[in-house]
Amino acid sequence: MKEIEIKSVLQVYDSFDELPENIQELMHQSMMIRDKAYAPYSEFLVGAAILLENGEVVLGNNQENACYPSGLCAERTAIYYAGANYPDVPVVAMALSAKSLKYKLITPTPPCGACRQAIAEYEQKQDNPIIIYFMGETGKVVKSSSLSNLLPLIFDNSYL
C-alpha cells in the first residue's frame, strides 16, 4: 500500500473590502440574487454570479421544491444557464454568497458536491480554470483559483 497526500491551496480575504473592485461588484450581484432565492424549506439562501469572458454576468439562486431532489442549487442554476445561452463563452469567475434566515452566517460556504461536479465539467470543457469566490452573509471571503482545489479527484470524461 502507498499513501498519497492531496493539497488544496485557497486564499482567504479577511473582509469583502479586500477583494478587487470587479469581484466586489460580482459578489454584490450574488448577494442581490441570493436574497431572491426560493428556499421556504431550508431557509438557506444562496446566490451565484458568474462572470463570462465576454463581460456578461449570469445570475442564479437556489430553487427549492417540496420534493427535495427536484430543487436546484444556485451554482448549477447559473452555470447551466450560462452553458445554454453562451455555450462557447468561457466562465472567468464565480462569486457565491450564502445566508441563513435562522442565524447569522459568517462562515464562507463553498459549493456542495453536486455543484462542484457540475462546475468541474465546465472547467474541463473550456480547458481553463474557473476562479471561485465564496462567502457567508458577512465576514471572510475564500478564493479558489480552480475548481480542482475544491474537488481534487474530479470525475471527468477521461474515465469514460
Rank of each mutant, 00 (worst) to 15 (best):
K2H: 08
E3I: 12
E3K: 12
E3N: 12
E3L: 14
E5T: 15
I6S: 03
V12G: 09
S15V: 15
E18P: 09
E18T: 04
L19N: 00
L19C: 01
E21Y: 07
E21W: 07
N22T: 11
N22I: 11
I23P: 06
I23F: 01
Q24Y: 00
L26S: 01
H28T: 09
H28P: 11
M31I: 13
M31G: 15
M31D: 14
I33C: 05
R34S: 10
R34L: 02
R34Y: 05
P40F: 01
Y41V: 12
F44K: 08
L45N: 12
A48R: 08
A48Q: 07
L51N: 06
E53V: 03
E53C: 08
E53S: 06
G55D: 05
G55V: 04
E56A: 15
V57K: 02
L59P: 00
G60N: 01
N61W: 11
N61Q: 13
Q63H: 12
A66K: 11
A66T: 08
A66I: 15
P69C: 10
C73E: 15
C73V: 12
I79R: 00
Y80M: 14
Y81W: 09
Y86C: 04
P87M: 06
D88Y: 10
D88H: 14
D88I: 07
V89S: 05
V89T: 14
P90V: 10
V92A: 04
A93I: 00
A95Y: 04
S97M: 06
S97I: 00
A98T: 06
K104C: 05
K104Y: 06
I106S: 13
P108F: 03
P111F: 00
P111W: 01
C112V: 01
A114C: 07
R116Q: 09
R116I: 10
I119Y: 03
I119Q: 04
E121P: 03
Q126Y: 11
Q126E: 05
I131N: 01
I131Q: 06
Y133I: 08
M135G: 03
E137P: 03
G139W: 00
G139P: 00
G139Y: 02
K140M: 07
K143D: 03
S145E: 09
S146M: 06
L147Y: 10
L147S: 13
N149Q: 15
L151T: 05
S158H: 09
L160W: 10
